[in-house]
Nucleic acid binder design. Structure first.
Lengths: 109, 109
DNA sequence: CAAGCCAACTAGGTTAACTATGTTGCACAG
DNA sequence: CTGTGCAACATAGTTAACCTAGTTGGCTTG
């Protein structure tokens, strides 16, 4: 599932989960699959899955409850600050990927 | 430096650095000490320092540049809701276009 | 002197092992 | 039936090792 695009695996997984949350296929209150389960689904190591979940936790999209699972937060309040940091993260990523693509293209002249 | 307060070490370090950034003792453009240096200063393992920096990166407070260091970002201004939705639409578009280009490139090996 | 290589530093990504701790459900003893 | 304990599962945190890769400065060689 995780592709070799130069985009690190833990961010690809975070992106995908974020997409599912934004898209509603993972609704507020829903639990994410367990980290072990996610590792299987994405064919990734447990470590990168933990990193991915950590990103979403930092972004405030998700709350982990020890012993239970990781749950999608209510998207209500955290409007601007979190959104902004997420957007900035996305912008940073796009810039990096663009730079990579551009350099690849220039090499092929 | 990292105390046994129940608050995990990587968050204590992230808190402290965030404080220094918000307080201006680390100004925009300034480099953070290297991860090795931070590990010494906080008497923490390299791993927790990396996690701490990762948090700040995710929050967008800081930008890492491979080979150089980690630099404090320029503090962004709050944006209006309309701007946000427009920016999000633009980001979505950019992401799709980039994904197309990337897959084209990867197919051509 | 100039070019280029190389060593030392930088961040970043991945994996694995171990620990701690919380939750849940089931089996077994009373 | 009650409840107690235990096994299985969950997140969370810490550490360490290994690899990639960009930057910089100095030294060596031509």
């Amino acid at each position: 599932m995780v592709k070799n695009t130069g985009r690190p695996g833990y961010l690809q997984i975070a992106d995908d989960l974020r997409e599912k949350i934004r898209g509603g296929s993972l609704a507020p209150g829903d639990p994410l699959p367990s980290t072990a389960r996610l590792a299987e689904e994405y064919d990734a190591s447990l470590s990168v899955v933990k990193l991915a979940v950590g990103v979403l936790r930092t972004e405030g999209l998700v709350i982990g409850q020890q012993g239970k699972g990781v749950f999608v937060r209510d998207a209500g309040e955290p409007a601007s600050p979190d959104e902004l940091t997420e957007i900035r993260a996305t912008l940073r990523d796009l810039s990096e990927r663009l730079a990579r693509v551009e350099s690849t293209l220039s090499e092929r002249g």
